[in-house]
């Protein structure tokens, strides 16, 4: 190889290197751009549509100006409360099983895999399944069955929380040092007490993080509510009735032809995203401080 062609190749390699660097930076910019665009637009449009009425009033009839999303905010609260009541205990229980009782067993592997499967089930399919399980059947065995209800929506969201809560609980429990478990057992503390009051408590910052991630995820879910909670333009907190939710109301208003409903949709979106960003940042803050402070 002549010196010239060597020089040329080395030039080319340097050039490729710079080109790739530029491309990577470009890709980053292209990714950050829509994010900035979404947030910027959301804040710009949302902030101007938020007022006291938004939080205090229920929707006005179509075509009228004004009104708010008070019913959707209350409805989201009811749905998420019910979802947490279902998803958090089952998820934490499953996580405790995986970390404390099933370690290394075939059953645990199967549970872990099934949880991942459940996590991947499209939310719209979850809505269909709950519709078919609760809404479409008339059975005295299933509470609130036979019609659209807040209960069915809460169940759908609760089930969607389980995998996230379960897997983070497992991971966090496994991070608790063996020495801490031994200390509790060595004192003659019953196993259940040791798991709950020592291991779980030591891992609690991480477990709470998992619960909040799951919460933030289902807080924005619309698809599973379409055929369960259905939506409701009136104020309701009754588990037996259809109920509204912020994402549902945003969806309905976004595809409506009325400008004032678009305005309300942006307001709702801002409230929803504020809730989620708050949860995610809190999670970020807790995890960056070390999940198990002083436990190692």
């Amino acid at each position: 190889m002549s010196a010239d062609s060597y020089k040329l190749r080395s030039r080319l390699r340097g050039l490729t290197d710079s080109l790739v660097t530029v491309l990577a930076i470009l890709a980053t910019l292209v990714v950050v751009a829509p994010l900035a665009a979404i947030f910027g637009y959301l804040i710009y449009k949302g902030a101007s549509s938020l007022n006291l009425a938004f939080f205090m009033q229920i929707p006005r009839p179509e075509g009228e100006v004004g009104g708010g999303m008070a019913n959707a905010i209350v409805g989201s609260g009811v749905l998420l409360g019910l979802a947490s009541l279902i998803g958090i205990p089952l998820g934490i229980g499953g996580g405790i099983f995986l970390a404390e009782f099933g370690r290394g067993t075939k059953l645990a592997n199967a549970v872990r895999f099934t949880a991942d499967v459940l996590n991947g089930v499209p939310s719209i399919v979850m809505g269909l399944a709950i519709y078919s399980l609760i809404v479409s059947v008339h059975s005295p065995l299933i509470p609130f069955s036979g019609h659209f209800s807040a209960f069915s929506g809460g169940v759908a969201l609760g089930i969607m929380m389980i995998p996230t809560v379960c897997r983070t609980t497992e991971e966090m429990l496994l991070m608790v040092p063996k020495a801490v478990r031994e200390a509790a057992l060595g004192l003659g503390v019953p196993n259940w007490r040791s798991v709950v009051s020592i291991t779980l408590k030591t891992a609690s910052p991480g477990v709470i993080t998992g619960c909040m991630l799951a919460f933030a995820r289902v807080a924005g879910e619309t698809a599973p509510l379409l055929f369960t909670a259905l939506g409701n333009v009136y104020m309701s907190a009754n588990l037996n009735d259809p109920i509204d939710a912020l994402p549902l109301r945003i969806y309905v208003y976004a595809i409506s032809p009325y400008d004032d409903q678009h305005r309300l949709a942006w307001g709702g979106a801002l409230v929803l995203i504020a809730l989620i960003v708050l949860a995610v940042s809190l999670v970020r803050y807790v995890t960056s401080r070390g999940v198990l402070k002083g436990a190692s």
Binding site: L133, N191, V195
Partner: peptide
């Protein structure tokens, strides 16, 4: 109490199977 706790945790874990099974069955 230990037995009950153990069984409860297993039930929580099994509920995940049950849910996926129910979803598939209903669909």
């Amino acid at each position: 109490a230990d037995r009950t706790f153990h069984v409860l945790m297993v039930v929580c874990a099994l509920s995940i199977f049950a849910i996926v099974g129910l979803i598939a069955w209903r669909l």
